[in-house]
């Protein structure tokens, strides 16, 4: 059993006012267009639904040909237009809960536009233990990764 804490953030400056940026996170039809309706990097989304209000649930299944399918489920904690959204979410496979995260979206006015900072604080549960991974046979891991690399190369 593993418990691994990680944090990352992504920041962008956008030539649109905070009110407009906020809409892309808070209106289901707009959110779907950038969050769930894309097929880049081999990922696509199935069964996306979004009830974007405090206490509401957003869910969907992210699928990747090589990596597999992951169920996403979020619950909204705070939605304060136009500056901040906070939600928690989990990622799971059919068998395993992989991670639980707290996501905070801050939208600041920046010149005539906005600056968006997405911060995710995550705990990774049973997706993989670094220590076990390190101790496992190197050859096994290489074989597995090589197999995946070859599939990616062939694709």
């Amino acid at each position: 059993m593993s418990t691994d804490f990680q944090t990352f953030d992504v920041t962008r400056e956008i030539a649109a006012r905070p009110e407009t940026v906020y809409r892309t996170w808070a209106e289901p039809d707009l959110k779907r267009r950038w969050f769930a309706a894309d097929a880049s990097n081999g990922w696509h989304t199935e069964g996306y639904e979004a009830d974007l209000r405090v206490g509401g649930v957003e869910r969907g299944r992210f699928l990747h040909d090589e990596i597999g399918g992951f169920d996403f489920e979020a619950r909204y904690i705070q939605m304060r237009a136009p500056g901040r959204l906070v939600y928690s979410y989990t990622m799971a496979t059919a068998e395993t809960l992989l991670s639980a995260s707290l996501a905070t979206v801050c939208i600041h006015a920046h010149g005539p536009g906005s600056r968006v900072i997405y911060t995710e604080q995550a705990v990774f549960l049973d997706g993989g233990d670094r220590r076990e991974t390190r101790q496992a046979g190197t050859a096994d891991m290489i074989a597995k990764m090589t197999e995946i690399a070859m599939e990616v190369e062939d694709a």
Binding site: F8, V10, I14, V21, N41, A122, F124, G127, G128, T133
Partner: peptide, 25 residues
């Protein structure tokens, strides 16, 4: 390490999402 690869993947996904969100806004 799976967790590191996973978080790197998540960050990469979010980079792409935020790019699309910015374009839409």
């Amino acid at each position: 390490a799976v967790a590191d690869a996973w978080i790197a993947q998540q960050k990469q996904l979010w980079e792409g999402r935020i790019d699309r969100m910015a374009a839409l806004a």
